[in-house]
Design a protein around this nucleic acid. Structure first.
Length: 303
DNA sequence: CACTTCCCCTGCAAGC
DNA sequence: TGCTTGCAGGGGAAGT
């Protein structure tokens, strides 16, 4: 589940394969809600455009094009952005599935060469494929659950989605949190997940930051003290920066553009650890449902 | 306006 | 073994 660290890792690793290159052809799957900009319009808009930069805002990736337009991507729950030249066993498994699907439908098996020489193949979940004029590796967007978003913005066009975003989670301070929580009766965790307040935090890092700060996820936001807001901001920055260092968390679906796994899942203290002993006090980790989502915490260390 | 619930989607794991 | 059921959750729409 791509949150800020996974999106940032994706950005850093896919940028060298995008920036400075000119799009030749855009291939899409059939229209779906994934495409906020209709595929036909997207194809016309991107063909011939050179990518000048790739930025991140919260969980969004924003490609700046040479005509001033922008390509906005959100990876949702299962979005993966990677290169057709990636060499990784994780991606070979996808390639194998694509080949068997191809065989089932009577098409020519695309992957018969030895593993070391094979090129990764798109499957039924590969919804966007960009090829480039230099004929080098393509860049693909794969999203099994299709919770992601693809949006093209004309030069100067604003986006309500982007305008709604609050301060980037890496820049959030204790003062930011304190101001945002005053008078709010929602659970502090729900507020952390609100992208209009802080952009980039998802379920994993919200739980980890609250654990680091010793604050229960269910506490009313307005009851969190100034000192606790300071601890929370520090803990949040800490877990996000550490996760970026380790390449993000590979729980369920996330893999980096080169097909590699992140390692932060091995460092998480509470997320998806229901019943396991707290690393500080040994108490069993609890799981509660908050806003239709699981929240994990130590009932002793978090008050 | 603040807050909660529902829903989009698919793969995987647990249970029978 | 094979089926059904439940769960994962970003985030917007709809409901309270």
């Amino acid at each position: 589940m791509p949150e800020l660290p996974e999106v940032e890792t994706t950005r850093r690793r896919i940028a060298p394969l995008l920036v400075g290159r000119t799009v030749a052809e855009v291939r899409t799957t059939r229209p779906s809600y994934l495409f906020l900009t209709p595929p036909a319009r997207l194809r016309r808009a991107l063909a011939g455009r050179r990518v000048e930069r790739l930025e991140r805002r919260g969980k969004y990736l924003i490609g700046g094009l040479d005509d001033g337009s922008r390509l906005v991507l959100h990876l949702g729950m299962t979005g993966q952005l990677f290169s057709s030249a990636a060499t990784s066993p994780r991606l070979w498994r996808v390639a194998d599935r694509a080949a068997s699907a191809d065989a089932r439908t009577g098409g020519a098996a695309a992957l018969s060469s030895p593993r070391a020489q094979r090129v990764f193949a798109p499957d039924q979940h590969t919804h966007l494929r960009l090829s480039f004029r230099d004929a080098g590796p393509e860049v693909w967007l794969r999203d099994a659950r299709k919770f992601g978003k693809v949006l093209w913005l004309a030069p100067g066009e604003e986006s309500e989605r982007l305008a709604r975003l609050g301060v980037d989670a890496l820049a959030a301070t204790g003062a930011t949190l304190y101001a945002a929580t005053r008078g709010r009766s929602v659970a502090i965790k729900s507020l952390l997940l609100d992208q209009a307040v802080i952009a980039g935090v998802g379920n994993i890092y919200a739980d980890e930051a609250l654990y680091g700060a010793g604050v229960r996820p269910t506490r009313r936001a307005g009851r969190v003290s100034r000192e606790e807001c300071e601890r929370l901001a520090t803990a949040l920055r800490g877990v996000l920066e550490r996760s970026i260092e380790t390449g993000g968390s590979s729980i369920s679906d996330y893999i980096a553009p080169d097909g590699s796994d992140g390692a932060y899942q091995d460092e998480r203290r509470v997320y998806a650890r229901e019943g396991e002993p707290c690393s500080r006090c040994g108490t069993r980790i609890w799981r509660v449902v908050l806003g239709q989502r699981s929240a994990y915490y130590c009932p002793k260390c978090q008050r």
